[in-house]
Amino acid sequence: MVDTAQAHSRSRWLSALAKAPLALLEERVATLGVLPEYRFLRSPEIGLAMVRGRTEGAGQPFNLGEMTLTRCVVQLSLATGDESISGFGYVAGRSQRHAELAAVCDALLQHSDWQTKVQAQVIEPLQGAAHKKRAAETAEVESTRVNFFTLLRGEA
């Protein structure tokens, strides 16, 4: 049913929506204008999720700790009405508004009429902002890099 390319791009936009700061997300969603009507399939709810890790990334799994999570599922009310679209929002923290906006954007991105618009006006600016922030952090860390020179490199 779901092809891998589509699933891959969906996981990328879900990631961008979940990691975006709420203020920026609100601002980008506001540029979309009037959104179609939607209803909650699962109203925003706050819960806990266990974060698991693996030793050195590949060893035995262990429980790292619990984190707060807010989730929400919305359904678009379409005029045609035959097949409805559900959007999922899972975000870290306790912001119900953030989960709702993420779910609405996810639903719109699955809608053929909205996809390009939301991708250009919401997802790409969010990805751009995240990229810029990461680049700034990397640059800041880079300035304090220390190189050690030895006669024999460790990996030889």
Binding site: M1, R39, F40, L41, R42, S43, V73, Q75, S84, S86
Partner: peptide, 13 residues
Amino acid sequence: MLTTQLPGFKDPV
């Protein structure tokens, strides 16, 4: 369908 199309309680609590 993978997910349901029907909501649950209107006022969950």
